[in-house]
Nucleic acid binder design. Structure first.
Lengths: 216, 216
DNA sequence: TCAATATTTGGTGTCATTGCAATTTTTAAG
DNA sequence: CTTAAAAATTGCAATGACACCAAATATTGA
C-alpha cells in the first residue's frame, strides 16, 4: 500500500478528531468554557478521557482547533506582494479584501459573537490566543528579515514586523469587539474598512515603504 | 485609633505577604516555576497552603507580585507631559530616562536574566504578563481618549494608544531578550537607546504629534 | 479580661493533566 | 483467512492548582 491511499486508521483518526472538536465546541458555546469538563466532553463524544488527550494536548486546543493555519497568514501576504508593492501595501490590500469579503478569517461571520463570548469568559483561552499572536509576530519577523535582505543586527525588519502585526491585531480586535457587541457582520465590515483607512493614515513613511518589491 | 498608626495585625500581614513572595521567588529562581508546588512554598514559609491563597489568588501572583503598579505607568507619562509635548514625545522622553538610568522598571538590572529564564520556562507566567500588557493598553486607551478630548466614536485615540503601547512593549521585549541572553545591563541600556531612536524614526507624524499640549 | 473581628488552618472536593499497564483495533504480511 | 507487530483506546492511580467550609487562634478595641 502506498502513501496515496489513506488507510482506514487515518480516516477514523481525522473523523474522531473532528468529532471531538465539534462536540466540545458545541458544549462550550452552550455553557461556556470553564463550565464544561473534559470528562463531559469525553462522555458526550463517547470516548474515554484519555482519548481526548490523545488528540488534544490541552482543553484550550479543543476550542481553538479551527483557528490553526493563521500563524503564517501575514507572512504569506508579505511574501506574495505584487511588483511595486511594499510589505505594508500587501498586508493592507489583503486585509481589505478579507474585510470586504466578510471573511471569517478576520472574524466576520454571523454568529461569531457566540465564539467571542466564550473567549471573553475564559482567561485560559485568551492566554492561548495571545500565544498564537506571538507566533504570528515571530513568523513575520523572520519573513521580513529574509524579504528585506537586511544585515543581521539591523532592527528595522523586526520593528516593521511589529507595526504590521499591530495593524492586523488592531483590526481583528476591533472586529471582535464589535461582533461581540452583537452587531451584524456586513455592518462591521463597512466600519472596519474605514478603520483600515485610519490605520494606514497613522503609519509612518518608513513602514509604508519597507521592503518594496521592484516594479516590473 | 486613627488611620495613621498601623496595628500589629497590619504589620504582620505585610511581613507575611513579603515573606511568602520572597520564599516563593527564591524557589522559582532556583528550580523553575512549574517545578515548585504551592505546598512546598507553604512548607518553606512555614504556613499552611490556605494561607498562601489568602495572600495570593494564584501561583503566578507569587512571582509577579513585584511587578505591580506598572498598569498605569504609560498613562502617567502621557498625563504628565510638558507644555509643548505630544503624548508620544512624553512617552519617548520618559522611556529614555528609564533606559539611561538603567532602571529596573524597564528590565535593566543585573541578575534580571534569572527572572527572564523563569518566565521563559513557564507559559502560565507569560500568559499573565500578556494580561498585564492588555491592562496597560486599555488604561492608556482611556487616558488618551480623555486627554485628547476626542468625540466618542473617533478611533484615533485608541489607535495612537496602540502605537505608544507598541513602542513600550517593543522596548521591553528587546531588553528582556538581550538580558536573557546574559548581556550586561549597561551594555543593553546603550543599545536600547539606539533602538528607541529607530523606533521614533518609524512612527508616523500623526502619532508623534497627537495630543500635543499647548506651549506656555 | 471580654466579646467582636480577622486570620490561619485542616479537611474535603473538583478538575486538568500525566503516566502506566492492560486491552482492543488496524495493518501488513504470509 | 490467520497472525503477529504497530497503533489506538481504555481504566486506574496520582499529582497539583484551586475552591469551599467550619473549627481553632490571634488581635483588636472596650
Amino acid at each position: 500500500m502506498g502513501a496515496m491511499a489513506e488507510g482506514l486508521r487515518e480516516r477514523k483518526k481525522r473523523q474522531t478528531r473532528q468529532h471531538l472538536s465539534d462536540v466540545a465546541t458545541g458544549l462550550f458555546l452552550e455553557r461556556g468554557f470553564d463550565a464544561v469538563t473534559i470528562a463531559e466532553i469525553a462522555r458526550a463524544a463517547d470516548v474515554s478521557v484519555n482519548t481526548v488527550y490523545n488528540y488534544f494536548p490541552t482543553k484550550e486546543d479543543l476550542f481553538l482547533d479551527r483557528s490553526r493555519g493563521i500563524v503564517d497568514r501575514l507572512s504569506r501576504y508579505v511574501r506574495g506582494r505584487d511588483r511595486g508593492e511594499s510589505a505594508a501595501d500587501a498586508v493592507l490590500r489583503e486585509l481589505r479584501i478579507q474585510v470586504e469579503g466578510v471573511s471569517p478569517t478576520v472574524g466576520l461571520m454571523e454568529g461569531y459573537e457566540r465564539f467571542m463570548r466564550v473567549i471573553e469568559g475564559a482567561d485560559g483561552l485568551k492566554a492561548r490566543l495571545w500565544h498564537v499572536q506571538q507566533e504570528v509576530l515571530q513568523h513575520l519577523e523572520s519573513t521580513l528579515q529574509e524579504e528585506s535582505g537586511a544585515e543581521p543586527g539591523d532592527p528595522t525588519p523586526v520593528l516593521v514586523a511589529g507595526q504590521l502585526h499591530w495593524v492586523h491585531s488592531t483590526l481583528t480586535a476591533y472586529i471582535g469587539r464589535e461582533m461581540a457587541a452583537g452587531r451584524g457582520a456586513a455592518e462591521v465590515s463597512r466600519d472596519a474598512l474605514v478603520l483600515l483607512d485610519d490605520i494606514e493614515d497613522l503609519l509612518g513613511e518608513k513602514v509604508l515603504n519597507y521592503a518594496r518589491r521592484a516594479a516590473e
